[in-house]
Design a protein around this nucleic acid. Structure first.
Length: 903
RNA sequence: GCGAGAGUGGUGAAAUUGGUAGACACGCUAGAUUUAGGAUCUAGUGCCGAAAGGCGUGGGGGUUCGAGUCCCCCCUCUCGUACCA
């Protein structure tokens, strides 16, 4: 081998690491400081890795490798979230068992990840579809059941006929399934639910202590959706319904009670049947029927135009005894609050719109706006008016104060009480699918009954027909022999639960299984759990901001409450990698006549023809791009990678062309980890050239040995190696410092830049001392581990320092015993402050804030203000500007800048 | 609508507490070398200007000796969310 050939050195080291179990984590050592760095659980799809995967994985791998060299005990595992719809749909189409598809996909993913040189402990691989794994998923479900957190309910669910399954609210986007984009309708069904709502307050409160991106915390807060206000009871007017009936509402604005001029019930509200008057019955029933048939999509569509029907009934406003009409309208949701509202059109936009449409009265009870023109909704500045009865007045009070006063009064009169409401709803936890965890539940005499723990795992029956039934019954219902069983306690005939768990189940606790993947007595070994938890760093995409992360936090808290885990939160620090977009594209538009039309971001008609342009065909004009030598504006932007757009980059292709080290390095060099950034194949070439330069820094491309500049430093005559000079040590230690600090701060792009600066500099040296090159390879190794290992080995052979294979290093420090050939456990180089000092300091010299020159002064005089100012004044360009007036002020910032203020 | 984040060269991006804006890399220009190369090396490259100098971090104000960084107003983009009472 002469030139840099990643295709030769990369497989060599990947094989070495695997065979020697270089990255096996040592469980016995629980004294050393631990570092648990985790990648989000991948779903092994048939299409393999996309370039987004290696982005986060490289970041965590760099940290894992760095921390190992820093002496930490590092846990860096990977596994497979392998249940899920695609394998099942493929099975329906082709008859291939989902388990077969899954295994193939897992093998593909494993091969791809290993080809990228990630330092996972492959002995800890877990797979959610493995009965030995889902045994404990089922066990956790039993615990949830024991805690009263799992229950069956017949609830209107999102039924997707196309997929033949029920979807969680989170899996429905704009009335369509997130997977596949099929229509979704509402339909009542028996389902398993988990009472995540019981944990709403803790899930909210404990966010505060987490080192997570603020945006993610905010999304979770919004999802939990805590509102404070009051429940208020509105009795129904005597004679308009059965006596004693009343409507309870939740409001965040009890201060506007005096402005409630009508009420609205959700169409599904159980009270509607009983209170609708004979005259209104037909209209009400008609409306309810229409509403029931609406999908979520329809409801959203009708957003703009509110509809509703009067029930004929009247309620009594408890604060002023006024009789107000009760309507039904689908802008009120049964699923939030009490499913009923008091409408205050003066101070709520929706109520105002509705009142306008149906000509209902609008009363001003908070001063500050003009309620004849729009609802006045400010709840900070407003002052209450028209809000008094014989016993209480909140007139002249600011809104926050008024809320307290009126709530106290309501409580005293037993008309209402302070209340907190959450948007968060219980978690719909069953799916009508085959390829998921079976519930450890049987039904005896129609009642659900959990199976005893020693009956776990309940494994999936073998089947060849995975088609869902038309009725919505899960495919498992077809496995008659499996379904019909007996109650192990009573011997009575029993039927198994045929729903399966959603995909979230397995990913809710996988980070615990990695800790003790073979533990038999529970989901996790308690001793090891105490050592390894919490996860120190969790890296993954922001698409899991609410769902996975909220569910996992919920399960973790339950496990904490029953003593299975020792921390109340699973993931201490969370980082979201930004999406990688396709390459920048230039698109021009042409009309029917073939004339180019300027792009207008406010909407281009589909009639125009899109023409893809090359970079050389366009030029920048102001803040936009135009076709070269014309005024025709083109659309210049990057798009999300998608098969349909044809801009998908396959990591395998990149590895084949440039190698895994180049791919890793490029993905880190693109920009900050968290940022969205466009792909650029030319950028990959840039880092590839850097790696080739590193190769040539040490190797001779003619002889396939180390080059003369390196060989000279160790001397052929046996004399001691050449000592690095001061300048060489200085740049080395500057680089060590920069790279160390940047890795700690996750600034991988600037760390790589520092490595490049070092290499550019060192290439100029006629003698390249091994004592400088070796630490450089160590700090390069987390980023480009294959190249670093190879160069380390070559230098080791040169100096004879490398121990023969088979001997070990680090055993005295508790580091796992590994052959010394690898640099993976070499101590991370430390930098010496003394070597970073400059001989001289350069000051920028400004006159009236404008830079007019620089002065270089010896370092030992750099703090001497008079000396430096004098030198600055004598700088020719500076003195010329000083002559223009009189110096009225001199600013001296040590080691940085001087500013003369001249008048 | 609401919430969060972001606007810096032709491109991706750098820039301690306010202290020489554009490090590093791509691209481009010129040259060297090579049978050739998506190879390598040298020099240049924010804009205007021959130079002196001027102008420059989305736009407009302000604070300061000094602002990409701090304050106020506005614009644009991205992400999330959507009748949540």
């Amino acid at each position: 081998m002469k030139e840099y050939r990643p295709a030769e050195i990369e497989p060599k080291w990947q094989q070495y690491w695997l065979e020697n179990k270089t990255f096996r984590t040592d469980d016995s050592d629980r004294v050393r400081q631990k570092y648990y760095v985790l990648d989000m659980f991948p779903y092994p799809s048939s299409s393999g890795l996309h370039v987004g995967h290696p982005e986060g994985y490289t970041a965590t791998d760099i940290l894992a490798r760095y921390k190992r060299m820093k002496g930490f005990n590092v846990l860096h595992p990977i596994g497979w979230d392998a249940f899920g719809l695609p394998a099942e749909q493929y099975a329906i189409k082709t008859g291939t068992h989902p388990g077969v598809t899954t295994n193939n996909n897992v093998d593909g993913f494993r091969r791809q990840l290993q080809a990228l040189g990630f330092s996972y402990d492959w002995d800890r691989e877990v797979n959610t579809t493995d009965p030995a794994y889902y045994r404990w998923t089922q066990w956790i479900f039993l615990k949830l059941y024991e805690q009263g957190l799992a229950y069956e309910a017949s609830v209107p669910v999102n039924w997707c006929p196309e997929l033949g399954t029920v979807l969680a609210n989170e899996e429905v986007i704009d009335g369509k399934s997130e997977v596949g984009g099929f229509p979704v309708e509402r339909r009542p069904m028996r389902q398993w639910m988990l009472k995540i709502t019981v944990y709403a307050e803790r899930l909210l409160q404990d966010l505060d202590d987490l080192d997570w991106p603020e945006s993610i915390k905010e999304m979770q807060r919004n999802w939990i959706g805590k509102s404070e206000g009051a429940h208020v009871v509105f009795p129904l007017k005597a004679g308009s319904a059965d006596t004693g009936e009343s409507i309870e509402v939740f409001t965040t604005r009890p201060d506007t009670l005096f402005g409630a001029t009508y009420m609205v019930l959700a169409p599904e509200h159980p009270l509607v049947d009983r209170i609708a008057t004979a005259e209104q019955k037909q209209a009400v029933d008609g409306y309810r029927e229409t509403a029931a048939r609406k999908t979520d999509l329809d409801r959203t569509d009708l957003n703009k135009d509110k509809t509703g029907v009067f029930t004929g009934a009247y309620a009594v406003n408890p604060v002023n005894n006024e009789e107000i009409p009760v309507w039904i309208a689908d802008y009120v949701m049964m699923s939030y609050g009490t499913g009923a509202i008091m409408a205050v059109p003066g101070h709520d936009e929706r109520d105002w719109e509705f009142a306008r449409k149906y000509d209902l009265p609008i009363v001003e009870v908070v001063k500050g706006g003009d309620v004849t023109k729009e609802a006045y909704v400010d709840s900070e500045e407003g002052i209450c008016v028209n809000s008094a009865n014989d016993e209480v007045s909140i007139n002249d009070l600011p809104v926050p104060e008024a809320k307290k006063v009126i709530t106290t009064w309501l409580e005293k009169k037993e008309l209402g009480r302070y209340a907190v409401t959450y948007k968060l709803r219980d978690w719909l936890f069953s799916r009508q699918r085959y390829w998921g965890e079976p519930f450890p539940v049987i039904h005896v005499d129609g009642q659900p009954k959990p199976l005893p723990e020693d009956h776990l795992p309940v494994t999936l029956p073998e089947m060849d027909d995975f088609e869902p039934t038309k009725t919505g019954e899960p495919p498992l219902a077809k496995a008659r022999e499996w379904v019909n069983t007996t109650d192990p306690e009573t011997g009575k005939p029993a039927v198994r639960e045929t729903n399966t768990m959603p995909q979230w189940a397995g990913s809710c606790w996988y980070y615990l299984r990695y800790i003790s993947p073979d533990y038999e007595k529970g989901p996790v070994d308690p001793e090891l759990e105490k050592y390894w938890m919490p996860v120190d760093l969790y890296v993954g995409g922001a698409e899991h901001a609410v769902l996975h992360l909220l569910y996992a936090r919920f399960w973790h808290k339950v496990l904490f409450d029953i003593g299975v885990v020792s921390t109340k939160e699973p993931f201490h620090r969370l980082v979201n990698q930004g999406m990688i977009l396709g390459e920048l594209e230039f698109t021009a538009y042409r009309d029917a006549g073939g004339n180019y039309i300027s792009f207008d971001k406010n909407g281009m008609s589909d009639d125009f023809e899109r023409v893809k342009l090359q970079e050389k065909d366009v030029e920048k004009r102001g803040d936009r791009f135009v076709i070269k030598d014309t005024d025709t504006v083109v659309d210049a932007r990057s798009f999300k990678m998608s098969k349909s757009r044809g801009n998908v980059i396959n990591p395998d292709d990149v590895v084949e062309l440039y190698g895994a080290d180049a791919l890793r390095l490029y993905e880190m060099f693109m920009g900050p980890l968290e940022q969205v950034k466009p792909w650029s194949m030319q950028g990959v070439e840039g880092v590839y050239r850097f790696l080739k330069r590193v190769w040539r820094l040490i190797m001779d491309e003619e002889t396939d040995g180390v080059n003369q500049a390196v060989a000279r430093s160790v001397n052929s005559d046996g004399s001691p190696p050449v000592k690095p000079d001061r300048a060489q040590l200085k740049i080395l230690h500057e680089t060590i410092r920069k790279v160390t600090e940047d890795i700690e701060g996750h600034r991988f792009n600037t760390a790589i830049s520092a490595l490049m600066i070092f290499t550019n500099e060192a290439m100029k040296w006629e003698v390249r001392p091994v004592e400088v090159l070796k630490p450089f390879l160590l700090i390069l190794s987390p980023f480009a581990p294959h190249l670093a290992e190879e160069m380390w080995e070559r230098l080791g052979e040169l100096t004879g320092v490398t121990a023969a294979a088979g001997t070990t290093t680090g055993s005295s420090t508790g580091v796992p015993q590994v052959p010394a050939r690898t640099l993976a456990y070499e101590p991370w180089p430390a930098y010496e402050e003394a070597l970073l000092k400059d001989d001289s300091k350069t000051y920028a010299v400004q006159v009236n804030g404008k830079v007019r020159g620089q002065v270089e002064v010896p370092a030992d005089r750099a703090a001497d203000k008079d000396f430096v100012l004098d030198a600055a004044r004598n700088e020719p360009t500076v003195s010329r500007h000083l002559e223009k007036g009189r110096v009225v002020k001199e600013i001296f910032v040590p080691n940085r800048v001087i500013n003369f203020v001249v008048k």
